[in-house]
Design a binder for these strands. Structure first.
Lengths: 100, 100
DNA sequence: CTTACTATATTGCATTACATAATAGTATAT
DNA sequence: ATATACTATTATGTAATGCAATATAGTAAG
């Protein structure tokens, strides 16, 4: 897969996943990498960015096996951002489609 | 427009434009920026990349007003690359769509 | 008990593509 | 002459990802 295509879209994928329900980092890695082959390092960087921007909040919960899971929750601000990014993405795909 | 979305796709847009017919740099800038807001500098960088990779060839032709135009022609190798990139792009959009 | 493996989180360095801005040359119109 | 439109090019910075390494906790195997 062309790595460049992912730039910017992975963030939207994360936001969309978190809209459904809170999820922890490793879980997001598993889910998203099933479709788009992404590494953990990339995902955690995106999550840090989103947290620094106030788009997600985090809390810890114990795991059945392994270290505690850090769950990510979409804030209201994050949901607004998600909606906006989704619209931008759809518009972008349409415009690009005209040229391709 | 989110600049990140463009990563990798601009190149495909250029290739697609050149599949129809040979075009010169300034012309490509005009056409593509109508849809996707791209500057000349970015376009010429992409064109240089494509030339260095053997995906396009160039030749000069006089202009009616202004400096000579440098036309870009898609090579056979470039056309194969374009087909491949187009498929990858479509597949990517579909996969991302599942997550969004 | 110790070794190995899975689950989970984090961080550092390199690469790549795009943005922005500046430079430069030619022709035409005023 | 001067401004303006057309055309091409290059330099510097930023941002997002890839890859690889580190760290910790639990569980299973020997």
């Amino acid at each position: 897969m062309d790595a460049q295509f992912k730039k910017g879209v992975l963030e939207l994928c994360v936001l969309s996943q978190l809209k459904e329900q809170d999820r922890y980092g490793y879980e997001l890695t598993e889910r998203i990498s099933k479709e788009l082959s992404v590494t953990a390092g990339t995902l955690y960087l995106i999550l840090k960015r989103l947290k620094d921007s106030g788009y997600v909040e985090t809390y810890l919960m114990e795991s059945t096996g392994g270290p505690a899971r850090k769950y990510y929750h979409l804030t209201e601000q994050g949901e607004n951002y998600r909606k906006n990014q989704k619209q931008e993405w759809l518009a972008f795909v349409e415009k690009a489609g005209k040229l391709i």
